[in-house]
Amino acid sequence: MPLKIDVKDLNLFYGDKQALFNVSLGFPEFQTTALMGPSGCGKSSLLRCLNRLNDIIPNVHIQGKVLLDKEDIYAPSLDVVELRTHVGMVFQKPNPFPHSIYENVAYGPRIHTLFKDKTELDEIVEKNLARAGLWDEVKDRLHQPATRLSGGQQQRLCIARAIAVNPEVILMDEPCSALDPIATARVEELIDELRERFTIVIVTHNLQQAARVSQQTAFFHSGHLVEAGETGALFTMPQDERTQGYITGRYG
């Protein structure tokens, strides 16, 4: 399986504080990679390096390389706005815009003018809501405020919004941590379906979730990548003592 994203010797600093130490990790195309580890281990920081959302935090600087399709996304010639159309993101807390359901999905296509006329935009909105498994639930109330949806529906709307700009990679930052178990199950099913079209990176501190949705898992501890590998193997035969401790619930 070719690597969609390749992180090489990445060091990340918030001011003087180093948050990631020499991380090297490949993300295979059309697979789900779970980043796992205790709070503050740097997994979210790594995720935010992949679409350069860390740029908006003052005093962040980075050493090393992040290659997307063999191109360095930190190269000076790269346009960060364009990068983010290729690498979409879903956040920890559902964060729909305070507009209608329709406008939430239509926003990305609108700013990138991915359509010719209103009919085509309608189609884009329907297609992506359907992909996110939300179409049947909201088709009669597309023009109602998105904030009136339940938490799980809002998160699926955010996924629909992210995939509406046709990204190649979707980053998910603990997408289920604010959801109840049923909504979580829906989102997890969705992640599994989306894998056919997108490369997915998901941050989670829920072990079962990592085991359920991912093909590859990477375990982080205090800014270091402890070990990474095929999910089944990592859970059954962890090589490192710290991974074993985390998996068996001795800490974390």
Binding site: L53, F91, K93, G108, R161
Partner: peptide, 21 residues
């Protein structure tokens, strides 16, 4: 809320678009 700004940035909006949209 900064989460809204991040959502728009994550979709590939420019800082000016985030600001005025």
């Amino acid at each position: 809320p900064p989460t809204l700004k991040e959502a728009a940035l994550g979709l590939g909006a420019t800082p000016l678009q985030v600001l005025f949209h």
